[in-house]
């Protein structure tokens, strides 16, 4: 492991934009690639896709159960289906279709949850997906992924196109800086990426919370002389337990970070594994608590719950001092 804390911000696009451009690139050479949408081509940034590949976009209308059921049928007949819908609706309204028609029937649909977590900010809880990791983790035969940056998004979409298994990929819509330009830190489903290394504390984050974790690592190092390992645990399931064990052995404390309920997500997945392995070091789950979510923009909400550069750094200091 040789990655270092990345001080240079490399500006990126929204992962959603990268999803869209990657899908266009794939569709160019593979006419079996289909985008299936529920009146979501605009929010999914798929308007250019639809213009370029009118035969490869299927509009369902606002009917998420049908979106997933139809996608399962298309996939069973050999289509490489990206079913695109806001994560909040896709994984709640259509949960039974995901469970039965996709996962249980083993139809290799690529479920794309857009504007995930609290991306929709002030639109409120109807539009937030803070449950998706929890419910989907409990469904057999489904890979659950939250790419952190543009690189991970592009890789995830390209790998998903080749994958003959059901998968859920979620991301938000804000611009995401690159975590690292070290190309040796490869992307593979089920293998966490080590973005920075340190022995004091591990920050294990997923999706778009990896970047604030990385920024927090800079604060901890520069101001407090605390060295943090930062992991992009982009695959929530199957969890990279080998990496988790290694990190647990080589650091003094662990914080998990996710734009999701503290119940049933990355944090509890890590806690479950570590407790059963006899891990006894300080451990903290940063996520959205079980309450009516505070109102405000995405940044307001994440800041309120310490899912931010400052909040993660503060939590790390508290955890290390609590021993």
């Amino acid at each position: 492991m040789s990655a270092i804390v990345n001080d240079q911000v490399i500006n990126g696009k929204a992962n959603l934009d990268v999803f869209s451009s990657t899908l266009q690139e794939l569709a160019q050479s593979d006419r079996n690639i289909l985008a299936v949408t529920s009146d979501s081509r605009g929010s999914g940034k798929l308007v250019p896709f639809g213009q370029k590949f009118p035969e490869q976009i299927i509009e369902i209308g606002i009917a998420e159960q049908n979106l997933v059921g139809v996608s399962a049928g298309l996939a069973s007949a050999g289509k490489k289906v990206f079913a695109v819908s806001p994560a909040c609706f896709l994984t709640a309204r259509a949960l039974e279709q995901i469970k039965n028609d996709v996962a249980y029937s083993d139809n290799p649909v690529k479920l794309i949850g857009i504007s995930a977590g609290v991306s929709y900010g002030a639109l409120g809880s109807t539009h937030h997906s803070l449950h998706d990791y929890a419910v989907l983790r409990a469904i057999n035969n489904l890979i659950v992924v939250a790419p952190a940056d543009n690189f991970e998004t592009e890789q995830a979409i390209k790998l998903a196109a080749k994958l003959d298994k059901p998968i859920y990929i979620r991301f938000g819509k804000k611009p995401m800086p690159l975590l690292t330009n070290d190309e040796s830190v490869a992307f593979e489903f089920g293998k966490g990426r080590v973005i920075a290394e340190g022995t004091d504390i591990a920050l294990i984050a997923t999706g778009e919370t990896v970047y604030p974790a990385l920024q927090a690592a800079s604060i901890l190092r520069d101001i407090h002389n605390i060295n943090a390992t930062v992991i992009s645990m982009h695959t929530i399931k199957p969890l990279d337990v080998n990496l988790l064990k290694q990190v647990a052995d080589t650091t003094r404390a662990i914080i998990t970070v996710e734009e999701h309920s503290v119940y049933g997500g990355l944090g509890e997945a890590c806690a479950s594994f570590l407790l059963q392995k006899g891990h006894k070091k300080p451990f903290k789950i940063l996520g959205i608590p079980d309450e009516y979510t505070v109102t405000g923009s995405q940044a307001d909400i994440l800041g309120h719950y310490n899912i931010s550069e400052q909040g993660i750094a503060k939590t790390a200091l508290e955890l290390l001092n609590s021993k």
Binding site: V70, A72, S76, A77, S105, D106
Partner: peptide
């Protein structure tokens, strides 16, 4: 589908028609 000849895992109601629509749409495409 563990049983040879079965097309889809069904049992929860209201699922056969959407899957069939997707499969028929694939045939058209």
């Amino acid at each position: 589908r563990k049983v040879h000849g079965v097309e889809q895992n069904t049992g929860a109601l209201g699922h056969g028609l959407p899957i069939s629509v997707g499969t028929a749409l694939a045939a058209k495409l």
